[in-house]
Computed example of a mutant assay.
Amino acid sequence: MISSSKPTLAVDFDGTIVESKYPKIGKPMLFAFETLQKLQNEGFPLILWTYRCGDRLTEAVEFCKDHGIEFYAVNKSYPEEDFDESISRKIAADVFIDDRSIGGFIGWGNVYKELIGENLSPVKIPKKESGLKKLLKKLKLSK
């Protein structure tokens, strides 16, 4: 299991890390890999949580490696997990970063701002406290 004081992040691939072009791999989303690298450097465990499987999943994992990101786990809660029908398919993550969230994907600059509290890009950040910021406060991981 993960022994990090930071929340575990489950990150979608298509439409979040790269443009949605499934089954092909789209172009990287603006600031996706830069943000993921900074989050990893800050100690956030990253799980790739995607619809992809088989060769398509292998392509996505390799694409991320080629861009400097290696995930703690891929489509599972921890690397050693073996799937069987007795295990829930809901993974153990604290935050899910996905383009299919209510309201859509907020952009990598905003993701970084929410998790780290710094601007990564000149993207305008709403001043209203988000649900994610409230969750991090509750977990005592943010001010």
Results as ranks from 00 to 15, higher is better:
Glu118Ile: 12
Ala32Asp: 05
Arg52Tyr: 01
Thr50Arg: 00
Val95Trp: 05
Leu36Asp: 00
Asn75Met: 01
Ile17Tyr: 01
Gly104Cys: 06
Glu19Val: 15
Gly103Tyr: 11
Ala73His: 00
Arg100Ala: 11
Ser130Tyr: 08
Ala60Gln: 06
Leu135Ile: 04
Lys124His: 08
Tyr22Pro: 12
Lys138Thr: 09
Ile47Cys: 14
Gly43Leu: 09
Asp55Ile: 14
Ala32Tyr: 04
Gly68Trp: 02
Leu39Lys: 06
Lys27Gly: 13
Leu132Cys: 15
Ala93Tyr: 02
Ile97Glu: 01
Lys113Ser: 12
Phe63Gly: 03
Ala10Lys: 03
Glu80Ser: 15
Asp66Ala: 13
Met29Tyr: 04
Leu30Asp: 14
Ala93Thr: 07
Ser88Met: 06
Asp66His: 13
Glu34Cys: 12
Leu132Val: 15
Pro45Tyr: 02
Phe63Ile: 06
Asp84Ile: 09
Gly15Ile: 09
Trp108Phe: 05
Cys53Ala: 12
Arg52Gln: 04
Phe13Asn: 02
Ala73Val: 00
Thr16Ala: 06
Lys76Thr: 11
Glu70Phe: 00
Glu59Val: 05
Pro45Asp: 03
Phe31Thr: 04
Thr35Glu: 12
Pro28Cys: 10
Glu80Tyr: 05
Lys128Phe: 08
Gly104Ile: 12
Ala93Arg: 01
Tyr51Pro: 03
Leu48Gln: 01
Ile125Asp: 03
Asn41Trp: 08
Ile116Asn: 05
Gly68Val: 02
Ile91Leu: 15
Pro28Tyr: 01
Leu30Asn: 15
Gly107Trp: 05
Tyr22Trp: 15
Thr58Cys: 04
His67Gln: 03
Gly68Tyr: 03
Val95Gln: 08
Ser86Tyr: 08
Pro79Tyr: 03
Ser130Ala: 07
Thr35Ile: 11
Lys24Val: 11
Asp66Leu: 12
Leu139Pro: 07
Val95His: 00
Val95Glu: 02
Ile97Asn: 01
Gly54Cys: 06
Tyr72Thr: 07
Val11Phe: 00
Ile91Gly: 04
Leu136Pro: 08
Gly117Ser: 04
Tyr72Met: 12
Ile47Arg: 03
Cys64Pro: 06
Val11Gln: 04
